[in-house]
Design a protein around this nucleic acid. Structure first.
Length: 579
RNA sequence: GCCGAGAUAGCUCAGUGGUAGAGCACUCCCUUGGUAAGGGAGAGGUCGGGGGUUCAAGUCCCCUUCUUGGCUCCA
């Protein structure tokens, strides 16, 4: 029989009969390994462990310890979910059912039916029952015509739409038990691997992420090869819930919300205010050292201000509506940004190249009409305070200023114990340039300045196209909360646009007028979001210097109130003296 | 904004059509010189708001406000 050479990750090369699968290789190594193999990486591509290998190849066997192994496991779990759904709800139509970072989901169209939490338990049971049957996941190549026919008969318009985007000859079906799905795979060998399943929640999700299209029911779940691991996972979720800033914020009396005041408008309680003011003090001090000047601007601005800035055109209709005065035609807006105000401060007097950079900082409270369904504790609100500043500088100073801001952000993060952040460079979408304002060459230069500054500061960054603000590229610092949701904190943004719109100028060494460049930046991002993430980060146990409760005076007995009272007032006066 | 799930005492929650409940917190009394948890008594709710069905609604139906899990959005 013809032999092929299989190269294993340790570099050793073994010979196997042509058509051997990853699983066969595993079996030849040890039975234990074979029991744990979920998928196989063949020449860098993840395959089914059972798929025959026809020529010489690099092979890596994937188990639960590999991200890709987990991925296949969860993807297969999604198919198992679909099989259970089809058994319980005949006629159900399927959208997509991928694995995600933690688990899997399947988008389904249940017609008129809705699912409650109680239905999830029933589906879980069905899944467990099906898993026990150890049905093999079998792969089958299909012609496009056959595939279309299959889903036409099944009357599943979603799969038919997916098929439209696929080329004939690349289409594969996977079947386990009674369930067949359009799928590129790979999958685990059989359903018996899936020992523990938990369906976590149901949610609506638009078909293909388009809010104009039909909303499907998305069922989220997670599964494990061992029951114990599920228990651990559920325990971890419980622990994370204990750190939820909304719960701790209430318990520690940091902030509250009122239906009467309005949704998304936080009320800071005395203790929360103490915490927030200490953070502000920290930032003020750091910024003073870094050469910033503090300014204060009003909470509203004339409509003309935002027409000039471009925000009116872009967001006017989707924001809080204007404030009118008794005078005909006079309109003001709650400020959604501090930058237009700061531009006017810059313009208050003539500037020389010798004055630059001008760094104007403000804890500026802004109001944005966020969609109601988006509001979330302190992390997504309609009124919040940015630790904002705008740096007006010469084009040749941009990169250097950018690096100084990176220093400030990193100083802030390290002082507050944030180590697990990621930095993202957000670039414009090169295929959709009309979404942005400003000239091509300005964008090119700004993007390059950011990339170089980040590189020279040794930041680990990811670059994402299409994530830039409409006026310029940016560098965002993201932190994950207790529930593993990712939030943007600090941000640094280059802006070649507002200086143009506001006709900002400075006199150069050549005695000509020049256009300054603006850098927007906020190391915390917003006080609200930062406090939220900080609460979750330390589980409410703030560093002493930030804590609203730094000292507790406990009387020996309740009959001894005098001395403790003295202690309290002594602590209070010492503290205020220390400020 | 959309789909799902919710809203009962300050907090966490029980209460499936028949006199509104528990634990913790709170107030008062007793007890207590040692770190949030001793004993007793008490106060506290037009069951988010409005309408409907019913002899009778916290409970069933409709509307609305807010919260929540996602989706879409995020200057």
């Amino acid at each position: 029989m013809e032999q092929i050479n299989i190269t294993l990750p340790d570099g050793s090369v073994r010979q196997y009969p042509k058509g051997s699968s990853g699983l066969d290789v595993a079996l030849s190594i040890s039975e234990g390994l074979a029991r744990n193999v979920l998928a196989a990486k063949v020449n860098g591509q993840v395959w089914d462990a059972t798929r025959p290998i026809e020529e010489d190849a690099q092979l890596q066997l994937l188990t639960w310890n590999d991200t890709e192994g987990k991925g296949a496991f969860w993807h297969s779990s999604a198919h198992l979910l679909a099989e259970a759904l089809e058994a319980l709800y005949p006629g159900v139509k399927f959208g997509i059912g991928p694995n995600i970072e933690q688990g899997f989901y399947y988008d389904v169209d249940l017609g008129e039916q809705t699912l409650g939490e109680t239905d999830l338990a029933t589906i879980e049971q069905k899944m467990a029952e099906l898993a026990k049957q150890k049905s093999e996941y079998s792969r089958r190549a299909m012609s496009k015509a056959e595939a279309v026919q299959y889903f036409q008969e099944k009357n599943d318009e979603y799969k038919l739409e997916l098929l439209e985007g696929l080329e004939d000859g690349t289409i594969t079906f996977y079947q386990q038990g009674n369930f067949t799905d359009l799928c590129r795979g790979p999958h685990i060998p059989h359903t018996g691997f899936i020992k523990a399943i938990k369906l976590l929640n149901v949610a609506g999700a638009y078909w293909r992420g388009d809010e104009k299209r039909k909303q499907l029911t998305r069922i989220y779940g997670i599964s494990f090869p061992k029951a114990g691991e599920l228990q651990e996972y559920l325990k971890m979720i419980e622990e994370a819930k204990k750190r939820d800033h909304r719960k701790l914020g209430r318990e520690l009396e940091l902030f509250t919300f009122s239906e009467k005041v309005g949704m998304g408008l936080p009320l800071w309680l005395p203790k929360g205010t103490m915490l927030r003011e200490r953070l502000e003090q920290f930032m003020r001090k750091a910024q003073r050292r870094a050469g910033y000047d503090q300014v204060v601007t009003p909470h509203i601005g004339n409509k003309e201000l935002y027409v000039t800035s471009g925000h009116y055109e872009k967001y006017g209709a989707d924001s809080f509506q204007s404030i009118k005065t008794p005078n005909e035609g006079e309109e003001f807006f709650l400020k959604p940004m501090n930058c237009p105000h700061h531009c006017e401060i810059y313009k208050a007097k003539p500037r020389s190249y010798k004055d630059l950079p001008v760094r104007l900082a403000e804890f500026g409270t802004v109001y944005r009409y966020e969609q109601s369904g988006e509001l979330h504790g302190l992390t997504r609100v309609r009124g919040f305070t940015q630790d904002d500043a705008h740096i007006f500088c010469r084009p040749d100073q941009v990169k250097d200023e950018f690096k100084k801001v990176i220093d400030l952000v990193l100083y802030t993060f390290s002082a507050l114990g944030f180590e697990n952040y990621t930095a993202q460079i957000s670039l414009r979408d090169p295929n959709n340039k009309q979404k942005y304002i400003g000239k091509d060459e300005q964008w090119e230069r700004a993007q390059l300045d950011i990339i170089e500054a980040a590189q020279e500061k040794g930041l680990n960054t990811v670059q994402v196209e299409g994530e830039a603000a409409f006026y310029g590229p940016k560098l965002d610092f993201m932190v994950r909360d207790a529930l593993n949701r990712s939030w943007q904190l600090g941000t640094i943004q280059v802006d070649y646009n507002l200086p143009e719109r506001f006709q900002l100028e400075y006199a150069g060494a050549d005695n000509q007028k020049h256009r300054p460049v603006m850098i927007h930046r906020a190391p915390f991002g917003s006080m609200e979001r930062f406090v939220a993430v900080l609460i979750e980060h330390c589980g409410g146990n703030f560093p002493l210097w930030l804590s609203p409760d730094q000292v507790a005076v406990l009387p020996i007995s309740e009959n001894m109130p005098i001395t403790p009272m003295k202690c309290c007032s002594c602590c209070r006066s010492t503290r205020s003296a220390a400020r």
